[in-house]
Structures are given as C-alpha cells and as structure tokens.
Simulated scan of single mutants.
Amino acid sequence: MDKMMKWVDAIRTITAPFGDPIGEIENEEIEHVIVAESSERGIFNSEVALEFHELSQVRVFAEMLRSSEEIEGIEIEVAPDFDLTVQYKGGEYECYQLWLGQPNRPSVITKLERTDVIWKLPEQTTNRLIDVLGLNT
C-alpha cells in the first residue's frame, strides 16, 4: 500500500503543472446554475429556461462572480435579460439578475436581495456567458 501511495504522489507531482481537473471539480463551490428570462428588475422569474450542471459551464458562472467589480453612480432603467439561480454545494443558493452586454462589451449583475448594488463584468466574461448561453449564433 505504501508503494502505491508513493506512486500516486509521484504522479501528482509530475502532473501538477498541468492542472488537476478532478481537484477543480471537487473545489468548485457552485454545483449548478438555473437561468430564466427576466421581465422586471427586482422581480424574479422562476420559469427555468436553461440549466447547467457540467463543470465547464458552471465554471463560466463562477468566473462571472469572481471577476465582478462593484461600480457606483450608475442607474439601470431597463429590465434585466436573465434571472440566475446559483446553487452551491450544501444546498445554499443566491439569485442574481444579469444585463448581458454585446460581444466584447461589459455586462452587469445585481444580487436580487441588493438591487441597489451593481457589479460590472469584464468583456471576456460577457463573451463566455454569450457562448455558454448559446447566444453566439
């Protein structure tokens, strides 16, 4: 058994520079994301349009949250494009509203409970969201 563990450790050491997809799956906090079309700011639509469970798709939404930057002095008068339910491991979830920008342009999100706080998403995040939502055709 000790020989096997040493062998496993040696393989991990050799392959560490190439990433650890199994570890990434275990370490990603988001379990799945539900997307609905939005109709009004502050009002959440619970009708599921899309649902994402795969790591490559969930990772886009995790990146969305990690790359967001709070901005001040902006007022949004139009309805959001999408309502997002982000479910974490352990069953906790958060609801967001997303105003999806055009390709290569920023987007913005708000947390449903805090619509007075707006976060800007970088252009590359907008592009990845467009791809995962299937809107790039």
Rank of each mutant, 00 (worst) to 15 (best):
M5D: 12
K6C: 07
D9V: 03
I11L: 05
R12K: 14
T13H: 06
T13A: 13
I14N: 06
P17M: 02
D20A: 02
P21E: 06
G23D: 01
E26Q: 08
E26C: 08
E29A: 09
E31V: 00
V33Y: 02
I34M: 04
E37K: 15
S38N: 14
S39T: 13
S39M: 14
R41I: 04
G42E: 01
I43Q: 08
I43F: 07
I43A: 10
F44S: 11
F44W: 15
F44V: 15
N45Q: 02
N45L: 01
E47F: 14
L50Q: 11
F52W: 00
F52G: 03
S56Y: 06
V58K: 06
F61V: 03
S67R: 03
S68K: 12
E69C: 08
G73Y: 10
E75F: 11
E77G: 12
E77H: 14
V78H: 05
V78K: 14
V86E: 00
G90Y: 00
E92P: 01
Y93V: 01
C95V: 03
C95S: 10
Y96L: 02
Q97F: 09
Q97N: 07
L98K: 02
W99C: 02
W99Q: 08
Q102M: 11
P103Q: 08
P106W: 00
V108P: 02
I109A: 10
T110G: 01
K111N: 11
R114I: 12
V117I: 11
V117G: 04
K120W: 04
L121W: 05
P122F: 00
E123G: 04
T125D: 01
N127H: 03
D131R: 04
D131K: 07
G134T: 08
